[in-house]
Design a protein around this nucleic acid. Structure first.
Lengths: 354, 354
DNA sequence: GAGCTTGATTTGAGCGTTCCAAATGCATTG
DNA sequence: CAATGCATTTGGAACGCTCAAATCAAGCTC
């Protein structure tokens, strides 16, 4: 039964609460209550008012609500230009999840274009017009960055996607348990019979990278497998990875766990160089499940982050914080999941065609 | 000279216009004018008021402004979940450009999470709370979709990223001249000495795909090169492309222009299959300059869309439309640019190492 | 010096909503 | 019958800002 939706635009202005009230023969406050506290109205009044609301196509003005209630129902999100571009898809999915979760809670995401070259705090000062947003979602919060402290001091509720790896922990966050992901990757490879499992990561000191390395190390230890000489570090690009992984292959690794899909791709290149086939000769596992993972040939097994869940958690944490600013900080660690593809073929399945 | 920025949060509420007025010894309206129409004030008054504004850290309340001026300074943008994921980086960059351009004009981007499975119009009805946004940016407007008509009827200003290929043209848009991009690709290949240049595209009927095909065809004709048997169509995924391109290679094509980087990748696979090397044996040009283009080996020459410019244009067109709703529609076509990489080596440069 | 223009500032009202306190009706009760 | 309780509804007032019109002080003209 489609609502009438009589076109309201040709008329003068938009339909206001007062117009609805007049038409329904009640006071404006009653209409307001019909929307915000229906339980206060007598059922028959409620029904009548609702009927008029529908009939007139009334929508409360967000601006007026925001002014009166001091709540804009907006959540800020600072997007940063991604230089390499390889994490863009990840952030895109995250943003989507965030937006969806926010919508479901009656909130909207408001974008703040952080200028390239890091979130200059000076800009933030100007950027965040006090009342504009009810809360903030920060991403890439790996390291202590000034934004947290700044927002905390301002009393603006915020939540981070990502732990803080250095400095004092401030505020709530949701993050993905990277160690658990690489642990699962090792577990998977061990089950396939691998024992010489190497790790290709980023230089130490990056919290995210160290976390992922730790999961590999932990799982290796658990299985009594040696980690010495099985770990290499590389910059984030394909070429650096190709070079960095060589010693690991020379040392006879039969499997490589990489800290990112891009690094895994470097590994592919290194293998091709020596006429070896990823998946057949050496197993490779990436991290992030970026679009390239599915596109590579052979397709790349990788650790997928539960971005939808992270988005939901971020919104949940943020709303909780807004409801109770004094509550103790809450931190959520989510489990990633291993996506098995052709670069780690399970025995019995067809070897990947090259 | 850093502004004082005395922390305003410990105080009671936020600083209001009236407080500033009282402190500066002027009327509220004068403070308002100091911000919105500085030229109305006597220079010395202006300076004094500005001093107090800075000193108190005053920021106008967007909510109150929006209520009074009936303009939220918000631009809506419907983000859709990208299924394949390979255009995500493109849209991510576009969104970024959009946000940046909007910021510079004093606007902010508000995200609408379009539910997966197409923009259900019913949802839009609920989604767009009349006053919420001043205007709308639509993307993926390739085909006539109901949103345009709906927004037009509602009197909501909007601009599309992408022409409408079917149906009546409605409203303003900015788009990238795909034909010009593939034309340039052919031009480049011809300059390298190629004559048997094939085109690998999507099935006919997709406006964007036909546009890109047309550019290839046009350039081929211009050079008196035959196009018969040099064109293949494929679904958008790598595997389909790998298969679809085979006949073109069999027919002796020395170069392939693809309608997307993903299709180009399929082409890479097909070449590898026959022990040919992209760039050395057969030149390949993609479209979109997605992250994979730079990551592939050999790196992929591709046509890059000027997304930053498109973003700026979208904002410009939208603002113009809002300023003058009755103006005739304006449409802008932007030139993409060819990014030459190793898959189309220029003579004299090193052949790409495999 | 009366009248007119110009420039600078103030006054009053209202944007559309929700909060607060008070009023209304009506049944129950001392 | 007056008093009490409860459920339902109402009347201002206020949120912080800007628009339109009014005021005030000079500066000019004749």
């Amino acid at each position: 039964m489609p609502r009438s939706t009589s076109s309201p635009s040709p008329k003068g202005g938009p339909v206001t609460l007062a117009m609805v009230a007049r038409r329904a023969g009640v006071s404006p406050q009653t209409v307001s209550n019909a929307i915000n506290s229906p339980e206060l109205l007598r059922p028959e009044t409620l029904e009548r008012v609702r009927g008029v609301i529908d009939e007139m196509g009334y929508r409360p003005s967000r601006a007026a609500q925001a002014l009166r209630t001091r709540s804009s129902k907006l959540i800020g999100y600072g997007i940063q230009p991604v230089p390499g571009g390889d994490t863009a898809p990840v952030m895109d999915r995250f943003l989507h999840a965030l937006s969806q979760a926010a919508d479901e809670a009656g909130y909207r995401m408001l974008l703040f274009a952080c200028p390239p070259g890091g979130p200059s705090l000076e800009g933030y000062e100007e950027l965040l017009g006090q009342h504009d947003v009810d809360g903030f979602v920060l991403s890439n919060t790996a390291r202590q960055d000034p934004r947290q402290a700044w927002l905390a001091k301002r009393g603006v509720p915020f939540v981070g996607f990502g732990r803080m790896w250095s400095g004092r922990q401030i505020g709530d966050w949701a993050d993905v348990d990277g160690a658990s992901g690489t642990d699962a990757a090792v577990e998977h490879l061990v089950a396939l019979g691998h024992r010489r499992i190497a790790f290709l990561g980023w230089p130490r000191g990056s919290g995210v990278g160290d976390d992922r390395a730790a999961g590999w190390q932990r799982a290796m230890r658990r299985h009594g497998l040696p980690t010495r000489g099985r770990r290499a570090e590389s910059a984030g690009d394909v070429e650096a990875a190709r070079i960095a992984v060589k010693p690991l292959l020379d040392a006879g690794a039969t499997a490589v766990v990489a800290a990112s899909d891009t690094l895994a791709l470097g590994c592919y290149h290194a293998l091709r160089e020596r006429n070896a086939v990823p998946g057949r000769d050496v197993a490779v596992v990436g991290f992030d499940d970026s679009p390239i993972a599915g596109i590579l040939s052979p397709s790349l097994s990788t650790v997928a982050q539960p971005l939808e869940a992270v988005g939901r958690e971020c919104v949940r944490l943020l709303l909780a914080r807004m409801a109770n600013p004094a509550a103790p900080p809450e931190r959520v660690l989510l489990e990633p999941s291993l996506v098995v593809r052709d670069s780690t073929p399970v025995p019995g399945s067809d070897a990947p065609a090259l």
